[in-house]
Design a protein around this nucleic acid. Structure first.
Length: 733
DNA sequence: GTACCATGCAAACGG
DNA sequence: CGTTTGCATGGTACG
């Protein structure tokens, strides 16, 4: 995971605490500047007022940028990051906010964006800034040089205050729901004035292409943030410009893209308007500013809608409402047209492509419609389903027919953690999908398309009163820099960590095809324990259980198991067990095989006999009996064990073994009756191993039994041979 | 009868 | 002599 995660409380933080803490958090923040506090609050997830339709495609753009670039590209490539201002990463102050990966991704977007923008040079600068981040004045403009080609305040410092006020109003107004959800999550898009010309240089052509607007006299507000700022400045000096003119100009400029219907759909409460206008200067000027803001938003949103629709039609294969939608890598993130940078939340963990769907309704907190795992047939007979009480029907085992589909696809995987599950899964950052604040009923504008209805809450009044805070643009930049720094550090740290974890040994020979560099090891890092009720589950009792006649080998709850493979993911019991244990199904782990450990497997020989069929099916084909060395990443510890996969000739056939397993077994405390599971990370191309301890609450009885006695006791269980039922499917060699 | 596999066990190896 | 390596044996499930 290279990003930010939102913990149970909905707090956004990177592994190392991205930015938010620095910024004083949101509600509970300690920001000293009113503006900071206000921003943070405004941007807090708890404020998640704005939940407009959001296209996952938008997410993908920056997402990809943020994730797949090892080295952060130069700023011009990521215009949207530019002034990802400040507050975006304000943590969700609302405890009740359920976290979903999607929103968490969104929440982390800004940080990621900053990270993307972050140059090493800036890091130092940021460090410096960080030390005195409470003093906005001391923020060296250079710290944001890469993103601040439009440092208007610097050009006109004298005007700064007024300009800033205006800008702040805009920003905060944007925070207050005139902008899209993504803007909420990443205010960078709000602070257009910070966006560089580079951005515009890149964006403008596309924008024009996507939305050709014959606007010779077009007020630049929709296209050019700089113009926007300047215009605001100018307008501050030209009060004669009245609302009608503003509106008229805007209409002229947007006649191509804004329909009367769009305008009619704009609904604002009077109180909102009045308050906002007041904060925007009051009187006519304030109204004018407010109008501009609204129009800007409408335009932006309209443009986005158009873009989104185009994008979806053209190449987006899925509807973002589809929880199983396949992530589109979108290798060429297209710049977001117009002012809205639409920072895409980075995927905190490339190995876990966060679903790029977002609830359409901001109020949709019940994830069940999309959380529900795909309907699976009864798990009985599923290979490796530890909870299958009945004997596995090997012959009809779907695994046999589905083994070809082990490559996990996000389209048919589901992640409970994506939704509003309070995450007990905190033992390992990577193991936790970023939890994002669940959509919250907006406090302010609940945007649906162009229609947003302002819902006035007491907090808004306070916010509005704070619009005129003394916060400066520098403060915002500083905050942004801090967050970028934190994220950048976090990002690098994790890269380093991943590299260490995955540093292959020279003799690592076998590796499933796939991407390198993603850390899937820790994603499922959990205590590999499975507890089996001793009563009424004889067939589920672990091997060696005192009263278990013969245990049905319980397959481990895999962190990410091919649903096709059954892997008990569809078993409520296992699912619950997984949740209790922190296991979360992930997308990119393909179940290969499992093996209930025999005494000989956990003995001092350091070798584990592997089920022949599965070994031959899912592990590299062995030409020589010496086999190959396979680095097996321990899911539990992220440690990589170089195990040798080999075979013995045996009765005109082969016996497949995994050698050098002694340390692994010992480190995991595995005993007879426990089991191991092998996975391959389809994305990272790694083999992963997981040792699962199966213990009943009571002390395990004498587990040492002769193989013969075990055999005798296993007669009741087709899977009694300790391997997957499919083992019984004979494959003559 | 055959395949699978748990494990016994002898040979090889090494301190 | 202890450990490791490699093969062989035999029980079990299944066709």
């Amino acid at each position: 995971m290279k990003g930010i995660e939102v913990d149970d409380g909905g707090d956004l933080h990177a592994n190392d605490g991205v930015g938010l803490g620095d910024t004083g958090g949101c509600a509970g923040g300690t920001d000293t500047t009113g503006f900071d506090a206000m921003e943070d609050e405004a941007m807090g997830v708890g404020d998640g007022e704005i939940w407009l339709d959001r296209d996952p495609d938008d997410l993908l753009d920056v997402h990809d940028n943020s994730i797949f670039y090892g080295d952060f590209p130069p700023l011009p490539d990521f215009p949207c990051m530019s002034s990802s201002s400040s507050s975006s990463s304000a943590p969700a102050p609302v405890k009740s906010i359920a976290c979903s990966s999607s929103s968490s991704s969104a929440s982390s977007s800004s940080a990621a964006s900053w990270a993307v923008l972050k140059s090493d040079a800036e890091v130092d600068e940021d460090k410096k800034n960080h030390r005195d981040h409470h003093d906005p004045v001391e923020v060296p403009p250079a710290a944001l040089s890469s993103t601040a080609s439009m440092e208007i305040p610097q050009e006109a410092p004298d005007q700064g205050l007024e300009d800033v006020d205006c800008i702040n109003v805009m920003e905060n107004f944007g925070y207050m729901d005139l902008l899209e959800p993504n803007d909420i999550w990443d205010p960078s898009s709000l602070f257009h004035m910070d966006d560089s010309h580079d951005f515009e240089a890149e964006q403008q052509p596309q924008q024009e292409q996507e939305q050709p607007k014959p606007q010779p006299e077009l007020p630049p507000q929709q296209q050019d943030e700089e113009f926007m700022v300047q215009r605001n400045d100018e307008e501050g000096q030209r009060p004669s410009e009245d609302l009608a003119m503003v509106f008229f100009e805007w209409l002229k400029s947007n006649k191509e893209s804004i329909s009367p219907e769009d305008l009619r759909n704009i609904k604002l409460k009077r109180a909102t308007i009045e308050c906002a206008a007041k904060r925007l200067g009051g009187g006519k000027e304030g109204m004018k500013q407010l109008l501009k803001l609204i129009l800007e938003w409408v335009q932006n949103h309209q443009l986005q809608k158009k873009r989104i629709s185009e994008t979806q039609i053209s190449h987006f294969p899925y509807n973002y409402q589809d929880p199983y939608a396949t992530q589109s890598p979108n290798p060429n993130p297209s710049p977001i047209p117009n002012i809205n940078c639409n920072p895409i939340p980075p995927d905190p963990n490339p190995c876990f492509p966060s679903p790029h769907w977002l609830p359409q309704s901001p109020y949709m907190t019940d994830p069940s419609p999309v959380m529900a795992p795909p309907p699976f047939p009864p798990m009985v007979g599923y290979m490796g389903d530890p909870f299958a009480n009945g004997p596995s029907n090997i012959n009809s085992h779907p695994y046999q027919s589905t083994s070809e589909y082990h490559i996990l696809d996000s389209t048919n995987t589901w992640q409970p953690s994506q939704f509003s599950l309070p995450s007990p899964y905190t033992s390992f950052p990577e193991s936790n999908l970023p939890l994002a604040p669940a959509p919250q009923p907006p406090q302010a504008f609940a945007g649906y398309g162009n229609q947003f209805t302002y819902q006035y809450f007491p907090g808004n009044g306070e916010r509005l009163t704070r619009l005129g805070s003394s916060a400066t643009k520098e403060a915002r930049k500083k905050r942004m820099a801090r967050q970028r720094r934190v994220f950048s550090h976090h990002h690098r740290h994790h890269n380093h960590h991943n590299q260490q974890q995955q540093n292959p040994s020279p003799d690592q020979q076998a590796r499933p095809a796939g991407n390198e560099g993603c850390n899937s090891a820790a994603q499922a890092n959990q205590a590999n324990w499975v507890f089996w009720p001793s009563a009424g589950a004889a067939s589920n009792s672990p091997a060696g259980a005192p009263d278990a006649p013969q245990p049905q080998p319980p397959p481990p709850p895999p962190p990410a198991v091919d649903r096709q493979a059954g892997q008990a993911q569809n078993n409520p019991r296992q699912l619950a067990a997984e949740r209790r244990q922190g296991w979360k199904p992930e997308k990119n782990l393909k179940f290969l095989l499992q093996k209930v450990l025999k005494q000989s497997d956990v003995g001092n020989l350091g070798r584990i006999v592997l089920p022949k069929k599965e070994a031959e099916t899912h592990l590299p084909e062995l030409e020589a009996r010496d086999g190959i060395t396979i680095p097996m990443e321990d899911i539990g510890t992220s440690r990589v064990w170089n195990m040798r996969y080999r075979f013995w000739p045996n009765n005109k056939s082969r016996m497949y073994l995994l050698e050098n397993t002694g340390d692994f077994v010992r480190s995991n405390g595995l005993q007879e009756g426990d089991f191991i599971v092998l996975y391959s990370d389809v994305k990272c191309g790694k083999y992963m191993i997981r040792g699962v301890k199966v213990r009943q609450s009571g002390p395990k009885s004498e587990s040492k039994r002769s193989g013969k006695s075990q055999r005798n006791q296993q007669t009741a269980s087709p899977a009694g041979n300790g391997s997957t039922p499919s083992l019984s499917k004979r494959t003559t060699k």
